[in-house]
């Protein structure tokens, strides 16, 4: 009896290890294959490719803009969601998470309809001289749409993990609400907020489906890679893909470093 139980414990462990190994290989395999496929010469060439470097610069710029905009719009809301019980709080929370479940081309089409020159909103913005669709702001809009849920949920969790009584103590010690937020909550939430921002930034950099519909040109990196793949085939797409992959890996390491260590 005890022997068979020991045997089944061992076989369960082997099964879990086997399944886990398949999954890890499934993630690592394609990425390693891609990394090693690109020859050093083709990478050097890619780095000298003006269209590619411009497109990466555009991607970094728009993703940064979308993240900052998302932080400005999302952090106060996240704080309210974490701290106050206002009517409709659950509804607002669900709505903010909605973009996560919407297929990205669908998001792109919806943004196109909402922000295009013929829509009331897009038309009004165009009157003010702000063209969105088929322009850089369209990229930022699409990135914001898909990445802002990450900022709001990350910031909300960060704020919720900080005991509101810390701010209350600071208030009785003479701080205004804003001072208590700035001196107590913000420093304590800082790393988590930064991690949420990096995650949103990475999400923006990797966005393709909605951007390709809202603003095909100028091309962000993911659109450029797709464009080269369809026009010139795999060899033309690989060096650009490798460069974007390396960029993503750097961001990934930064996020891991920012996230608080798991309690052991």
């Amino acid at each position: 009896m005890s022997r068979s139980r020991r045997f089944s414990a061992l076989s369960t462990r082997l099964l879990v290890a086997g399944l886990g190994a398949v999954l890890v290989l499934f993630i690592l395999g394609p990425l390693l294959r891609l990394l090693f496929l690109a020859s050093p010469q083709s990478l050097a060439e890619a780095l000298r490719d003006r269209e590619l470097s411009q497109s990466i610069a555009l991607t970094v710029f728009t993703a940064t803009a979308a993240t900052l905009l998302g932080a400005v719009l999302g952090i106060p809301l996240a704080y309210a969601l974490a701290r106050s019980a206002f009517p409709g709080r659950r509804l607002v929370q669900s709505l903010v998470d909605l973009p996560v479940v919407i297929p990205h081309p669908v998001a792109g089409i919806a943004l196109l309809l909402f922000l295009g020159r013929r829509s009331p909103v897009g038309g009004a913005l165009a009157q003010l001289g702000l063209d969105i669709v088929s322009h850089v702001p369209g990229i930022v809009a699409a990135m914001l749409f898909v990445s802002v849920p990450l900022i709001v949920s990350g910031a909300r969790e960060a704020f919720a993990s900080i005991d509101p009584r810390l701010e209350r103590v600071a208030r009785t010690l003479g701080d205004t609400g804003w001072q208590a937020f700035r001196r107590i909550t913000l420093p304590l939430a800082g790393r988590s907020l930064l991690a949420a921002g990096m995650l949103a930034w990475a999400r923006s950099v990797s966005e393709f489906g909605s951007i390709v519909i809202v603003t095909y040109n100028p091309k962000v990196a993911s659109v450029l890679i797709y464009d080269r793949f369809t026009a010139f085939g795999l060899p033309a797409a690989v060096p650009a893909a490798v460069i974007l992959l390396l960029l993503a890996l750097v961001v990934f390491l930064v996020i891991r470093w920012l996230q608080p260590a798991e309690p052991s």
């Binding site: 009584r165 810390l166 009785t172």
Partner: peptide, 15 residues
């Protein structure tokens, strides 16, 4: 507002 009330508070869990 709390900051104008001129009182100190000590919580059970200190905070």
């Amino acid at each position: 507002a709390p900051e104008r009330r001129g009182l100190g508070i000590v919580y059970q869990q200190y905070h």
